[in-house]
C-alpha cells in the first residue's frame, strides 16, 4: 500500500489546522453600522497561513475554507454559508484571501527568510491584494462607483488591516521555529532515502 510522505502528511494536517483557524476567525466577526462588510479575523489567519505554510499549502487552506462554505457549511463570517455569500458583496474578499495566501507565500518563501520580507509580503497581500479583490467584488455586486466601494470596503478596515499585518508578522517569527525543524528533518530524510 502506498504510504503518504511524512512531509506531505504534516502539511496536510497544518493546512487543515489553518482552515480551522480561518473558520474560527470568521466567527469572531463584528458588524459595522450601515456597512455590509463585517470586521473579521479570517484575513489575519490567511496571512499567517501564507507566511508559515508557503504559497501552495496556504492556497490549499483557503481553498478548503471556501469549498466548505460553498457546500453550505456555516464557515463564513458570522456563521453564513452557501454560494450566495461567494457571489455576494463580500465574495470578492474570499477570492482575495485565495490570491493573498498564494502571493504572500510566494514572496515570503523566495530566498532567505527575513522579517522585512515577511512585512512587505504581508502588506502587499494583506492590504493591497485582499482589498483590491474586495473592492472589485463590491463594485460588481452592488453596482457602485470606485469611491463608494472604497468607502464601504476599505477605509473603515484600513487601521485594523495594518494591525493584523504587524501581528501576523510577529506571530510568524514566534511560530516558524516550531514548524521549520520538522520540515527540514523530513526533507533531509527524504533526500537521504532518495540517495540510497
Amino acid at each position: 500500500m502506498a504510504k503518504t510522505s511524512p512531509l506531505n502528511l504534516r502539511m496536510t494536517v497544518y493546512s487543515s489546522l489553518f482552515t480551522a483557524l480561518i473558520i474560527i476567525g470568521g466567527y469572531l466577526s463584528f458588524p459595522i453600522p450601515m456597512n455590509p462588510v463585517p470586521v473579521v479575523l479570517s484575513d489575519f489567519f490567511v496571512l499567517l497561513a501564507g507566511l508559515l505554510l508557503g504559497a501552495s499549502w496556504g492556497f490549499t487552506s483557503v481553498a478548503m475554507f471556501i469549498f466548505l462554505g460553498a457546500l453550505g457549511l456555516p464557515v463564513f463570517a458570522g456563521g453564513k454559508a452557501g454560494l450566495a455569500v461567494i457571489v455576494g458583496p463580500t465574495g470578492g474578499f474570499l477570492f482575495g484571501f485565495l490570491a493573498a495566501a498564494a502571493v504572500i507565500g510566494w514572496i515570503a518563501g523566495k530566498g532567505k527568510i527575513s522579517v522585512l520580507k515577511d512585512l512587505v509580503a504581508s502588506f502587499i497581500a494583506g492590504v493591497i491584494v485582499i482589498y483590491s479583490f474586495g473592492v472589485i467584488g463590491i463594485m460588481l455586486v452592488l453596482k457602485t462607483t470606485l469611491l463608494k466601494a472604497l468607502a464601504i470596503g476599505v477605509l473603515p478596515f484600513l487601521p485594523g488591516a495594518v494591525i493584523k499585518v504587524i501581528a501576523a508578522v510577529i506571530l510568524a517569527q514566534v511560530l516558524r521555529p516550531l514548524l521549520q525543524p520538522q520540515f527540514k528533518s523530513n526533507a533531509n530524510s527524504n533526500d537521504s532515502n532518495d540517495n540510497q
Binding site: 500500500m1 504510504k3 502528511l9 496536510t12 494536517v13 516550531l178 514548524l179
Partner: peptide, 27 residues
C-alpha cells in the same frame, strides 16, 4: 494567543505523527 497557537501547533504535529505511525495512506 501565543500559548493557544503554540499548543495547537504542537497538537497538530502530534496528530501528524500519530497518523504517520499508523501508516496513514491516501490509498
Amino acid at each position: 494567543v501565543f500559548p493557544l497557537l503554540r499548543r495547537t501547533f504542537e497538537q497538530a504535529d502530534e496528530m501528524a505523527m500519530a497518523m504517520e505511525s499508523r501508516c496513514y495512506s491516501e490509498v
